[in-house]
Design a protein around this nucleic acid. Structure first.
Length: 797
RNA sequence: GCCGCGGUGCCGGAACUUGGUAUACGGGGCGGACUUAAAAUCCGCUGGGGUUUUACUCCGUGUGGGUUCGAUUCCCACCCGCGGCACCA
């Protein structure tokens, strides 16, 4: 009789829930294992076929760990603030809260239908006031420590989402969400000082068991460079130009200075407080540069442009030389000090600039071709000639420090995190603006600050949040002086809630604390974290930052939140392109569960390829998993109580070893393949021992829990998912006979079976007797006989 | 341009950690059994070429070199694909 997944799967899902098989204990003698998925945004579209790939992997590991005696925390929740629900509200008038409730219900049903073993008693939702109370609380602690500050700088503005964005949300000059071109806009913003943590975020990456590409992306994003800060005094006028350089060793090659159009001195020239002979020309250039978006400024980067500040000279503090000052938009206002010393002989960009405007190019490192960017021997540098550039760096920094014209310095690409959004559906920033007291935090006992009901969710587009129009909500008494004051109307970005959610699963009901310190210590850090790689410099950087802050507050006990990280690869359409609605090639997990069963979906997602690789979805391949399960289903007829099956035992133990090692190293595809080999072998037998079959079911259970449970329950009590993981016996796993390969000059000539552990002399004697081998070595002079135990014999002639 | 990952049958992929039978496992295809028939199921074959055609032989893991008794695996150079970053001083 065929396996009826529709009947069986529902039955066991109910059973597991009733028996609380996946419930984690707060006080347990067992070692803990915290296994975490990146929680989803509950979109209206429901679960994508890619979601279950990561979820099944953590589910497999959770079951495996539980069966190995761990107290496993494997929770799930909802990252439910964000624009889709809000945009839907704008269109239909449905409150985002209602949309979220509906979508969460749908998502949860879908996850349950796949048989994923979450401990639902710990479910959280970032839009729940009892949850975001603590998101606001963390923000307030940052505010109190000076890590959250207000700023009015030109920031990234998405004209379609009508909100400011963080740098991490701008991808190639476009909005990460909607792909619109990002504009510059001057608006008041709340900014988090992530740069204070730059060093720790960089250094602590080293000890993390994370994919190297993700670590590398974070390193590049933080972008630390070591060098020097150097002051160039201005000639015949007050003031100086401060520059950052990684190459102080090339200071004698600095033939001009370049200021960014945003530089303070540039502004002074434009405003007239600093005199320049060609003020008009400069004004024109600066205006043009300011109009360009970042995208344009980089796209048009092929050709350098700039304008000299006529009449202004800077003085090289080391050589005393007077050099001209230019303004050019290839120098960025926000990096370093917004100004550089230009060394055209040893920097490509400076070289292009010098070539275009006929500026002096002076080599100060021995080079055959300019620009020369490598290390070498110093020339044209007065007393310093002949030094290595490495030593030169040290000498120059020494000298700068002595004459008080500069010092050793470190610079970062990382910029502070623009944290406020001019939208409705996010956590309100819990601050109050008072004319008398300034910006005052909402008292902790008044948290959470909840969202008011509004009539229109539409963003104003002026840089003000829609909350600003709700007078009754905005107007409050100042908690400090009691006078009339106004609430901050910006909300937090969608990343806020996910920065610390893994801590809340540990103690989701706690009303007094974010998390109980004892519980926190017993479960942190997250042992395994699984999700998509697209969060490399977003969620995965932000949450590390918040975690380190919470560590400093003694709320978290570990330096890092996520010990081990794995990224699941994308699931593509059959032709290798992205699945998309417009192409009509979107596969729904629901259809697969309905037609083939949850176990088949799980098996296929794990079997289709390497976990971290991008793989195409091929429904024909899904059939193979169903056939495998039918085969397993058929095996039950062959099970007999007592049967030694000697010849199956070796393979069984090799399979136990293989599946165990493969789960540990995330090689689920080969684990399943080894289970198939064992089941094929079992199928070829007339009888299978109960013992072998039971062990096989335990190995299969993490991947295909429903069918395993059904077959297990015929002979056992309690869930197979709560049974002990089988142990393998190395002795039994070893093959008694091995195939010995015979080569002549490295080419395969013959192979034959021998007892394991055969001695060299014996093997060579046997090999020489083989007809095919004889033919190869006949009349030849054997110079060497190579023997590799249990593997091969090679005759070299 | 820089950084990272990858290139293996008709397709998804295995073997690369530790050099030692290349293509496990699954799909597809072909042939056969069962059937009135089809589906499903089961059994067999399935890298390419050559031949005196059933046994042997040569070639074969992106390309070209190297190390080695032996290289998909190690080293060097290059080509192609994918992802990330990109005027970061």
């Amino acid at each position: 009789m065929k396996y009826d997944h529709r009947k069986q799967e529902k039955k066991w899902q109910k059973f597991w829930e009733k028996q609380q098989v996946f419930r984690v204990e707060d006080d347990s003698e067992k070692p803990k294992f915290y296994c975490l998925d990146m929680f989803p945004y509950p979109s209206g579209k429901g679960l994508h076929i890619g979601h279950p790939r990561g979820y099944t992997a953590t589910d497999v590991v959770s079951h495996y760990k539980r069966m190995n005696g761990f107290n496993v925390l494997h929770p799930m929740g909802w990252d439910a603030f964000g624009l889709p629900a809000e945009n839907y509200a704008i269109k239909t008038g449905t409150h985002p809260r209602e949309t979220v409730v509906k979508n969460v219900k749908h998502f949860k049903n879908q996850l349950k239908s796949i048989g994923l073993g979450y401990d639902w008693s710990r479910e959280i939702n970032t839009t729940d006031p009892d949850y975001f109370k603590w998101t606001q609380w963390i923000f307030l602690q940052m505010f109190k420590k000076g890590l959250a500050y207000e700023d009015e700088l030109p920031i990234n503005w998405c004209p379609s989402c009508k909100t400011g964005l963080a740098n991490e949300e701008v991808v190639k000059g476009r909005c990460e969400r909607c792909d619109s071109e990002v504009k510059k806009k001057d608006i008041r913003q709340w900014v988090l000082k992530i740069t204070d943590y730059a060093d720790r975020l960089l250094e602590d990456l080293e000890d993390l068991d994370w994919p190297e590409p993700i670590k590398e992306m974070q390193r590049n994003w933080i972008g630390r460079s070591e060098g020097a800060k150097i002051n160039f005094k201005l000639k015949e006028t007050e003031g100086e130009i401060e520059v950052f350089t990684t190459r102080p060793d090339t200071i004698f090659g600095a033939t001009f200075m370049v200021l960014a159009p945003e530089h303070d001195l540039t502004q002074e020239i434009v405003s007239g407080s600093l005199e320049a002979e060609n003020k008009k020309e400069i004004e024109k250039y600066v205006k043009k540069a300011h109009k360009k978006s970042d995208l344009e400024r980089t796209e048009l980067s092929k050709e350098k442009s700039g304008v000299e500040v006529k009449g202004l000279k800077a003085i090289n503090p080391i050589s005393g030389e007077e050099i001209p000052v230019w303004i050019a938009d290839y120098v960025l206002g926000y990096y370093g000090y917004g100004a550089i010393m230009s060394v055209p002989a040893h920097d490509e960009r400076d070289y292009e600039m010098a070539k275009k405007y006929g500026l002096e190019i002076r080599a100060v490192i021995e080079a055959e071709e300019l620009p020369f960017k490598a290390e070498g021997k110093v020339i044209n540098s007065n007393d310093f000639n002949g030094l290595s550039t490495k030593l030169m760096k040290e000498k120059i920094i020494e000298k700068l420090e002595k004459i008080d014209a500069g010092e050793r310095a470190t610079n970062y690409k990382l910029r502070d995190w623009i944290f406020s959004r001019q939208r409705y559906w996010g956590e309100p920033i819990p601050l109050i603006h008072c004319d008398g007291c300034g910006t005052v935090p909402v008292p902790e006992e008044d948290l959470p600050v909840t969202l008011p009901e509004v009539e229109k969710y539409e963003p104003t587009g002026t840089g003000e949040s829609p909350l600003a129009t709700i007078v009754s909500w905005v107007n409050v008494d100042c908690p400090r002086c009691g006078m009339e004051a106004k609430r901050e109307t910006n909300t937090m970005p969608q990343w806020a809630g996910s920065c610390w959610y893994y801590l809340r699963y540990i103690d989701p009901e706690n009303e007094k604390q974010l998390v109980d310190p004892e519980k926190e210590k017993s479960f942190m850090p997250v042992d395994l974290y699984v999700g998509g790689a697209e969060h490399a410099v977003l969620h995965l950087l932000y949450s590390r930052f918040w975690h380190k802050f919470l560590y400093d507050l003694d709320v978290a006990s570990t330096k890092e939140p996520f010990k081990k990280l794995k990224n699941q690869g994308l699931i593509m359409a059959k032709d290798g392109t992205k699945m998309s609605k417009s192409k009509g090639n979107v596969v729904s997990p629901d259809e697969i569960v309905e037609q083939y069963g949850a176990d088949v979906l799980r098996l296929y997602e794990m079997f289709v390829g390497g976990f971290e690789d991008e793989v195409p979805w091929d429904e024909e391949g899904v059939v193979g998993m169903r056939r495998f399960l039918e085969k397993v289903w058929g095996l039950k007829e062959k099970v007999v109580e007592k049967e030694p099956d000697e010849d199956l035992r070796g393979l069984l133990h090799r399979t136990i070893r293989k599946v165990t090692e493969d789960i540990e190293s995330f090689k689920f595809n080969t684990a399943i393949s080894s289970l198939m080999i064992l089941s094929n072998e079992m199928k070829s037998k007339d009888k299978i021992s109960m013992e072998a079959f039971t062990k096989f079911l335990k190995l299969l259970a993490p991947f295909a829990p429903h069918i395993s449970e059904e077959l297990w329950q015929k002979h056992n009590d309690g869930s197979v998912l709560r049974s002990d993981w089988p142990e393998f016996d190395e002795k039994l796993a070893k093959k008694k006979k091995v195939t010995l390969v015979v080569q002549v000059n490295g080419k395969l000539r013959d192979k034959f079976e021998v007892e394991r552990g055969i001695k060299k002399e014996e093997a060579i004697k046997l090999a020489k007797k083989r007809e095919k081998v004889k033919k190869g070595i006949e009349g030849e002079d054997i110079k060497k006989e190579i023997f590799v135990e249990d593997k091969l014999v090679n005759f070299v002639t």
